[in-house]
Design a protein around this nucleic acid. Structure first.
Lengths: 246, 246
DNA sequence: TTCCTGTAAATTGTCGGACAATTGGACGTA
DNA sequence: TACGTCCAATTGTCCGACAATTTACAGGAA
């Protein structure tokens, strides 16, 4: 919280709003991986010009949430075990580092810890009450999960690092939502998140770093194993647990 | 290398060409940090439409090479010690990791090592013969430097990691070009690059990793110290501290 | 049938002009 | 000096148009 005067919420540019809208649809699963993003259709259904849609799509491309093939159009980024592995290995490198940075400066306030605690509890409730077979429930679970990671890393006060993590976590959302949905042997994240919080509270940066890294490595390994088991040899692209022709 | 028939060089989209053109100008220093990027001027001087220029600028924004302030226009990203520290700390995290990945799979071929060796030698020649007070000489030196790092990390075969490093190295170019230029107490990079290559050839991943990390940490620390000492008017916060390793 | 080829439809890439929205600065007044 | 108004410059967004390219399909040849 800054002590400065209140900042008014500026109306963001239309392009940003459109990009946010599409992103949200991807996060919720209404736009699954591979879904075509037709410029004219989008501009008509959103009531904006084609140019604005184009700009929004380019931004999402740079966030690697959509793929653009020249003269063929844009589509939601497709999934592959390889991409999953890359995302999780990078997160396993960067998130522990962020936590170490924050702890090295004793940056977690009492308020931060309370916030993390609340997020862990909320995650637990959602995981117990929700049905991961339902997109809306799964969306809530993933949102709580990502929020925990965001807050956890936020205190690093490392702007560029946070930018990278935001992108990686966005992509993580797509993977979890569209992979787990069809196979509900989902492991609960509440215990590990609880363990992370405890480690942070312990005040030992190296310990916390190790716990965070292990959590991410385990989650990544589990997801990748899963995807590879359900992928058909020779076909790398996987969408929503089904194999797409090449 | 695919065994398929030869791939013809596709004419890239105009937007990509324009973005590349502007990027090159930034790398060469003809567009220094803070330089305004006027949409109409650019479109007229490049002979393309304003929309194309806009798209190109958005891409460069997502690469954090230009800043866009709503209704005020775009400009080349400004420098700050903080940004320098962020860039180098991230590189110090990611490049050693890339080298470790590559060495763990024994991915460096004889050809790779020869290529790296040639780059080290070229760097040495440039550093000895060039005058770092001249932009064109400095540009060549930096290009050889970055090329070494690119090849060094390229064998990691980690697409997403390479994407991040490409962006970080692009920004590194801006920093070096526009900081060193005015203060020629430049440290020669040939010896450290030589040491890195030797470490890679030694076959010990942990050793190589450590050498790479030290090189980047040292370079970052030197640059940040430099910037803080010579803080220029118009720059924002100047915070103490040095680039920390892993 | 299967393979090839050429044509047409669909979609994106790029252009130019137009106007609204916003900003920064010049100007005038107290 | 301080303050409020007006104006010019620039970006944000829209529209319509056409070129370039890909894809689908129909039709012909082996």
């Amino acid at each position: 919280m800054r002590s400065r005067a209140e900042q008014f919420v500026r109306p963001p540019t239309l392009t940003a709003t459109v990009a946010e809208h599409i992103k949200e649809a991807i996060f919720r699963g209404s736009l699954p991986p591979g879904a075509p993003l037709h410029e004219v259709d989008l501009s008509k259904s959103l009531g904006v010009s084609r140019g604005t849609v184009r700009e929004a799509l380019r931004h999402l491309q740079d966030e690697t949430l959509v793929e653009i093939h020249p003269h063929q159009g844009a589509s939601v980024t497709r999934l592959s075990p390889r991409k999953a592995r890359e995302i999780y290995t990078l997160r396993a490198q960067l998130e522990p580092y962020a936590v170490r940075l924050a702890m090295g400066r004793s940056a977690y306030t009492r308020g931060d810890l309370d916030e993390l605690d609340a997020l862990v509890r909320r995650l637990g409730e959602l995981e117990r009450s929700g049905d991961p077979e339902h997109r809306s429930d799964l969306f809530e679970i993933i949102t709580a999960d990502m929020e925990f990671h965001r807050v956890m890393c936020g205190r690093s006060e490392h702007e560029m690092l946070m930018g990278m993590l935001r992108s990686l976590q966005s992509q993580t959302r797509i993977f979890i939502l569209n992979t787990i949905l069809y196979h509900s042997d989902l492991e609960l994240d509440e215990p590990t998140h609880r363990a992370i919080l405890t480690a942070i509270q312990s005040g030992d940066p190296e310990h916390a770093e190790a716990v965070v890294r292990k959590h991410i490595v385990d989650a990544g390994t589990s997801l990748v194993t899963h995807m590879e088991a359900h992928a058909v040899a020779g076909r790398e692209e996987v969408v929503g647990g089904r194999v797409q022709g090449g």
